[in-house]
Amino acid sequence: MRQLRLACTVLVLVTPVCLVTACRLDQQESSTSKSSGAISLLDASGVQHILPRPAGRLLSLVPSATETLRAMGAASTLVGRTDYDTGTWIAELPSVGGGLGPNLEAIVSLQPDLVVRFAGGQDQATPSRLDELGIPHISVRPDQIEDIYTTAKLLGRATGYEAAADSLVQAIRSNLERVASLTAKLPRQRVAYVLGGSPPWVSGPGTYIHEVITLVGGENVFGDLGPLYSAVSFEEILNREIDVVLIPNEAAADPFLSQDARIEVFGPELEMPGPDVVETASRVAELLHGIELP
């Protein structure tokens, strides 16, 4: 038995050492030398990347970034798509599965020279596997209106479409300002965005939904909640004075939501920040105020 106990102890002790060694190896790999005369990028995770030349074979795992590339005329640089890129313009390209936890084999076979991925730690494995396979990757954050600009500029630099990215950002900015000024003088509408569920999930502050609603002369009645999304009781919904309840689809409708409020099925666009923000914002404005924007 003593031998066994010893063996167990050795087992428990050996592995952390292996792990530490593995970590060291990782660090060495990531601090590879820089080359000169190349493009330097700072991505949404705050990581500095050096590309030897503009990326010409891009794989975007982030649908919003994919749409941004198309909007700035760089669709020809894309070599693949995810299952969530459903536009007909991109249907011809091979899919690599989901944007989180994509199929690595499919990625390797497409031979991209740059992969665009989600920032944050939802998908632990993909970034490190891409590192090991020697495939460069940058992260973007598709959460708020400002992120659309940041993503466009980052992708513009990465692909050599800087001018196109700048004019896209300019166009979106000025169009959003136009929508905002057209709705500025109208009476503010009290709005709740209900994602569905029971108890219902609503959008709090810090979301794209909140930003767009605020921009077009609405007031998010749940703007006082904690950041992002929260589950609230039906009581709380009835307690707040709401003019308009926006829901993404019929499934989110509930008789309890509609005491005095008008319920509008909006579609999923408000949950997907992207270069179509002007169109989305205009639709929200028209719905809230019952007007037709020029």
Binding site: L11, L19, A22, L25, G101, G120, A125, Y229
Partner: peptide, 29 residues
């Protein structure tokens, strides 16, 4: 957040997709 929930549920379901030589060595030990 919903993101955390999503990534955790994916993790709990179990997958071999993250396999690399280090995890093979670790598990073999």
């Amino acid at each position: 957040s919903a993101q955390t929930v999503q990534s955790t549920v994916l993790w709990i379901m179990g997958s071999l997709a993250a396999a690399n030589w280090q995890s093979v060595a670790l598990t073999a030990t």
